[in-house]
Design a protein around this nucleic acid. Structure first.
Lengths: 356, 356
DNA sequence: TTGAAAGCGCTACCAA
DNA sequence: TTGGTAGCGCTTTCAA
């Protein structure tokens, strides 16, 4: 014992400063301090404003956002739900969302559903408790899981309470949607490929229950059929909606000697990338022995060999627009169409017609 | 006018149900309702628990997290700061963090600093107001920006208030750190490459001010020097810490005819990928005309042609461990080392010694 | 322009 | 085991 006092020194503040501390230090009431810090500071005497600001600075005051939220009844946060963040598709969208949120002064909370509709539903439920200003759902809808109605109900309740909901690429739900022209993009891709001379196609998709997968598949098929006669229905391979899925499907195809397929269309780029690697692993040269095309035009498409033909989707913009839609409080079921465009590259070289 | 009443119907609840509503519906006090819903429900009669639960369910009650947070003085959130989310390095870490947060029942809020230290500082400040349980900083430190002290001060205040801070790969700050063995990994890579027969190197880095860049560069240099005589100092190219940076640097190198360089080491994979594309665009074949190596071993390294030699960093695990460290409240400046390992692939084939 | 006071929705203490 | 009550930190009437 040295006789030293344990009593905190005057400047010792173990606890973060509260608004009351600031008010006291500035010699004003908490009400005035509050007004000076955010409220329309028009009605606070300039001198007091600076006193409060100075006090806040010297006390290292940081407003307690939760307290603010309870008092005001609203937060400054946006919630984003993705299937998986380590996927170029979602991380690009997330980047756009983050940018939009930042511009609007919102904090973004992110949740990962791991492609499970049940998990997604549970996430939305938790999110509701957070009272975010907006909820953006970017994961692709999966049909027939029985969670659809529950999800709609949950989101409806959220919206009724004043929140705004925006879906990315799921126009069949009754909410504002940033919709990617999946079918149309795939259709144009098919036509462009036929024009390049391809006739025998394989499509790697993720089944009809994944909305995005189905739309792109349907569009591709439509494009082929429109292209006139001489084009048989494509060989259809179902696989997981991931790189691994694309790899597995293409490996199987290769092991069967390609079945005469000239071009493999995978319904997204990561699947296409997996497919290209699988083909190479099977001793085939993508772009020469068999062409490959994808969808999304993720950034790395141009770093592949051969560069990947794809359908360009401005993913970053999709995220940004989703945020903007949410904030501009558009009509419930409004749909913003994001156009896509075909980008032909070396993975689908022009094909010489076979000798007659 | 139809004479219909505007008065809300009995079951009409435009506002979200509050705990009081639930309590009332269950015929208990708010205190009991609160206990039934979360508090150690040991001391609530079973019958009341079920009454409350039923009432909550029927009213679609979702607890107001902000209110909870103000009352309890603590939240269930974790904050993650990254340089940019659409970068495989950060999105993999983010995935790990998200998984860890999920396991701990935390919500994660994500902020993007766009590689600006000022922005990062400002983000941390805002984050503090959120009172998250943990803050994880994953962006690489940039020296000499004058924000270092301010950042430390901010984080210290946060920690004093009970939060826990974990940095990813920035062991020079006085906080818990998940440290990647950057120097050691690069050193071993250099040795392995020398062993494969390479002698003339170029290094594409992002300058000494970016800590990660410097550590990897230093390690690589050390590895070369240890490898004995006959190895000149590498050609050094500085570029942005991005794919575009790698592209630009390699383009310049190629336009100078490679200057005799046999292998280009880029201090991260995205730079290496950009470099490979630049070399190809210049008519060179990576892996044949010039070898390329990167660092991080991001997932797509095996989808490149040639497959990219790299130093493997378990990024997902890094994120997960960061979360775990934060939650296990380890000593302030504890450092968890994440080992790295060299992965040799086709982009650096064994090199035949030149004819004597 | 200002301050007192009454909340916001929830938790936690203290008696009962 | 329960309910009353006093907060948590902030905002926002309502008077002064």
């Amino acid at each position: 014992m040295t006789g030293m006092q344990d009593k905190p020194q005057p400047g010792d503040r173990p606890l973060p400063a509260t608004l009351r501390d600031v008010a006291r230090a500035a010699g004003v009431s908490p009400a005035t301090a509050s007004r000076a810090l955010n409220g329309s500071s028009r009605n606070v005497r300039a001198e007091n404003v600076s006193r409060v600001l100075a006090a806040a600075a010297s006390l290292d005051y940081v407003p307690h956002l939760s307290a603010q939220a309870t008092a005001k009844g609203s937060t400054r946060t946006a919630a984003l739900v993705v299937s998986g963040i380590d996927d170029p598709y979602f991380s690009s969208i997330a980047a756009g969302v983050a940018q939009g949120a930042d511009a609007a002064g919102l904090t973004v909370t992110m949740a990962v559903s791991e492609r499970s509709p049940e998990r997604e539903l549970q996430i939305v439920r938790t999110l509701r408790g957070q009272r975010p200003r907006v909820i953006i759902l970017a994961g692709s809808r999966i049909d027939g899981t029985g969670t659809r109605e529950a999800l709609i109900e949950e989101l409806d309740a959220y919206r009724t309470a004043g929140g705004s909901v925006v879906m990315v690429s799921q126009p069949d739900l009754p909410f504002g949607t940033v919709s990617i022209e999946n079918a149309e993009g795939a259709r144009q891709l098919a036509r462009a490929l036929v024009e390049r001379g391809y006739r025998r196609f394989a499509v790697i998709w993720a089944g009809e229950r994944i909305r995005t997968s189905r739309d792109r598949y349907d569009g591709f098929l439509a494009g082929l059929r429109e292209s006139g006669a001489g084009i048989g229905d494509p060989l259809v391979l179902e696989a997981a909606f991931t790189r691994a899925g694309g790899y597995a499907a293409a490996r199987d195809l290769a092991s069967r000697g390609l079945d005469g397929v000239e071009l493999v269309f995978a319904v997204n780029d990561v699947m296409a990338i997996g497919a290209m690697t699988a083909l190479r692993d099977a001793g085939l040269v993508p772009g020469e022995d068999v062409a490959v095309a994808g969808f999304d035009d993720i950034g790395s498409a141009v770093d592949l060999v051969p560069m990947l033909t794809s359908v360009s989707v401005p993913l970053h913009e999709v995220g940004l627009r989703a945020m903007e839609c949410a904030l501009s409080d558009l009509d419930a079921a409004e749909v913003v169409q994001i156009p896509t465009s075909v980008v032909l590259r070396d993975s689908t070289p022009r094909r010489m017609p076979p000798a007659p």
